[in-house]
Amino acid sequence: MDILDTDAYDKRQRRNTSCMLFLFLLPFFASVALYFYLWIPDSAPSILASGVKAAPVLSLAFVVLKYNGGRSLLGVAGGLVMSAGGDACLIWPNLFLMGMIFFALAHMLYSLTFLTSRYFSHSLSSCGLYFFYLLLWAAGGGIYFYLLPFLKKSPEPEVFVPAVGGYALLIVLMTSLAARTRRPLVLLGGLVFMVSDFTLALQQFKVVEHLEHGKHLVMTTYYLAQLLIAVGDIKATMAEQAEELHKWKRS
């Protein structure tokens, strides 16, 4: 098989793999459509409502497990499962803090994944990347201090002031490590996640009394962020497997 035949074969393989991935993602798109059709935020808190809200993220966890195996339970798949737990908690207003804890665990698992060899980059000493880190941490710190007066007015300031600060630290760290991977899908997922959480915080802590279509914005960006992170993780695994195959062919 000459090099042209090999290139054509690789292109067919990538095309077939992308088609299969899209098919596996159909339950995610269907469950997201169901969530918006039923518009769960306007319904009374219930086990059914929490299940409908968590279903899209759980479907992504199953797809990541399908491609990456059980090891991903300590990585992105595990983070998605933790996120589903957070989704379920946020259905009930009095479980908001518990939901934050679940999402904080999810960001920790994402961060650990982005430090693995699958995401290793040989060109990390970029001035542009360090400048991006500076902007990211400045934005995260600025958002927290912008929220701080409103956190102090919350029903439990002694809890939410440090809790939101710790959560902000974790999500900015996760997005910084996503940038370190140099993988656009993963980085975009982290950035969109920050937008989603900031929009949620504006409403949760009464920074804005009424944000038109605020809940729609929160959930649209949230589901998009999880999709980007999940697909980015799958693509990283595919790239690793392709590299190992090419090394085997050359040997």
Rank of each mutant, 00 (worst) to 15 (best):
D7I: 15
R12A: 13
Q13A: 15
F28S: 06
A30E: 10
A30G: 07
A33F: 14
P41F: 01
D42Y: 04
P45T: 03
S50P: 07
G51M: 11
V52G: 03
A55V: 03
S59F: 12
N68T: 01
R71H: 02
L73G: 01
A77L: 03
A84K: 06
G86M: 00
D87Y: 03
I91Q: 04
N94M: 04
L95R: 12
M98Q: 10
M100C: 02
A104M: 10
H107S: 01
L112V: 08
H122Q: 11
S126H: 09
C127F: 12
Y144R: 10
Y146L: 15
F150W: 15
V159K: 14
F160D: 09
A163V: 12
A163M: 13
L169D: 05
L170H: 05
L170M: 15
A179L: 14
R182Q: 14
M194K: 00
T199D: 02
T199M: 06
A201T: 15
Q204E: 14
F205M: 06
G214H: 09
K215R: 13
L217I: 15
V218N: 06
L224G: 07
Q226E: 12
V231F: 00
I234H: 02
A236I: 02
A239Q: 11
E244C: 00
H246K: 13
K249H: 10
R250F: 00
